[in-house]
Design a protein around this nucleic acid. Sequence first.
DNA 1: AATGAATATGTTATAAAATAACAAGTCAAG
DNA 2: CTTGACTTGTTATTTTATAACATATTCATT
Lengths: 162, 162
Amino acid sequence: MRIDAERVFSAHDHAACRRATLERAEEIVAAEGLRLTPVRRRTLEILLESHQALGAYEVLDRLVAAGFARQPPVAYRALDFLVDHGLVHRIRRLNAFAACMRPGEPHRPAFLICDTCQAVAEAPGTGVADAMLAAAGAVGFEIERMSLEAVGRCPACREARA
Amino acid sequence: MRIDAERVFSAHDHAACRRATLERAEEIVAAEGLRLTPVRRRTLEILLESHQALGAYEVLDRLVAAGFARQPPVAYRALDFLVDHGLVHRIRRLNAFAACMRPGEPHRPAFLICDTCQAVAEAPGTGVADAMLAAAGAVGFEIERMSLEAVGRCPACREARA
DNA sequence: AATGAATATGTTATAAAATAACAAGTCAAG
DNA sequence: CTTGACTTGTTATTTTATAACATATTCATT
């Protein structure tokens, strides 16, 4: 199952969506010899519960509910691990984190953040990143990492408001 | 004088560059009936001193040096005003602020951030924003604001390292 | 199994970034 | 000269993130 913006922004079988993404994440972790320890797994599950981005302290609250200690490094370490290995994206505009919906597929995501329902989707295609690479190349700038984020209104919330 | 990435990333007459940008900012403020009060003016000058982004607390330090009180709202209010009126950009990846190099020209900037010399330039053209608008439009997402930022190495630092 | 290197966790403390809230002052328009 | 909008002063707090160091676990190799 492939989850892109159309799906994130619409009603869908989220249980299946979450399960599929988690399974894929586990394959990746296994393939790379990484360890999806209990905190890390739970952190990923927490982020997979919705398509909304969560702040580190919201994640921490839910980790506490699952029995882990209420200490910032607990959440930040798990989140950093997941981000480093491409299972979670950091959303800089929100100081928050969202599960990657296509782990393993190398991609340079651009995010669409609905400021009404707080859902975060990865924009389809690679056009935005390509344009950034082109613009940078034109002035001799070599890109290492990028943050491509747009805030606005998703189709459902647009309609609800109209 | 128009200052784009090529210029920011190269040696240039920065005194003239700064003066020109400040003058343009003053015209804009006057034209819109806004008030460029002393804190606001000084804040803009501070950011215009280099092409690097400064954190709010670095700005505050320099405001203190200029006689203002050391209180976060002093810096944040001035910065917020300047951002709201397009004279300063917020660089989310850095939790920092950089003077806009083309105030008044309506634009949707994409930033190139050198992680060696910390210079921040606006990428040429509107291609990145256009691509983002296109990607969003394809899924019915309506964009209000965007952050388009790339971290990497500018031409000069690339060469220095090579 | 014993050892050691790498990795992961527990814990305390602190740093860094941003905002809330409210009182007081300024300023230009009627 | 007063009203209303805007701006500043000030105290306190909230939110986000990291430093630092001790302990424990894991795994590969003896």
